[in-house]
Design a protein around this nucleic acid. Structure first.
Length: 198
DNA sequence: AAGTAATTCAACCGCGAGTTC
DNA sequence: TGAACTCGCGGTTGAATTACT
């Protein structure tokens, strides 16, 4: 029994608009149901991801500010790859974004550190950085939580007021809080109306 | 200006935890 | 209480973009 194939790949503007519209109606839950009734042809998972990582109001896009970078370093040193947990401390940033950021920027920095640091000072016995394969360096970079210390960051350093952070989180979470389930179950959506309202 | 390599980032996948019935 | 369903997380991939030769 083949279910209708779910669409994959990049989202179009129309899909984004439609998703936003339906999330406004149903709230951020029941993604499978939302995916079905929206007629997007996407999986609920895909819809959720698109919303959370790209369409959610209040998301920041673009380069990380120095404060954000420092906070990521601090929190990664503290929590490791708990990206969602780290993301909660960075209003407007998603776990996916932070994860990507870490993999690119921090890996690069870690590589630089490995290259600049004296091989003899390393406790790893078998390889100097110059001889380490790229994938090895990457994993080293990923796991090297002590990199934070190398960047001159210590856990005690306060870069971003936590009050500020939580205030912003609270503000963004007040979005879309109230909705009427009965209404939602009975509502009949028609595409013309949707397009009109967009 | 063209070709190639490196980088970035959106999106997918698999799995485990939590929730509902 | 247990099965089914849903959600969220972390890891990974691949297309698009940018930088370099």
């Amino acid at each position: 029994m083949a279910a209708a194939a779910t669409k994959k790949g990049p989202w179009t503007e129309e899909e984004d608009a439609r998703l936003g519209w339906f999330v406004g109606l149903f709230g951020e839950r029941r993604w499978d149901y939302l995916a079905q009734v929206s007629g997007l042809g996407r999986s609920g998972k895909s819809c959720r991801l698109r919303w959370v990582n790209y369409l959610h109001p209040g998301l920041k896009h673009g380069r990380f500010a120095p404060e954000e970078e420092q906070l990521v370093i601090q929190l990664h040193a503290k929590w490791g790859n708990r990206w969602s947990q780290i993301a909660r401390s960075l209003p407007g940033r998603t776990d996916n974004e932070i994860k990507n950021y870490w993999r690119t920027h921090m890996r690069k920095k870690a590589q630089e550190l490995n290259l600049f640091s004296s091989p003899s000072s390393s406790s790893s016995s078998s390889s100097s950085p110059a001889n380490v394969p790229k994938h090895e360096l990457e994993s080293m970079a990923e796991e090297d939580t002590s990199a934070a210390a190398a960047f001159g960051v210590t856990e005690g350093v306060k870069v971003y007021s936590m009050d500020q952070i939580w205030d912003e989180i609270a503000a963004s979470e007040s979005f879309c809080e109230e909705e009427d389930d009965e209404f939602k179950m009975n509502i009949k959506i028609d595409d013309d109306n949707f397009m009109h309202n967009c």
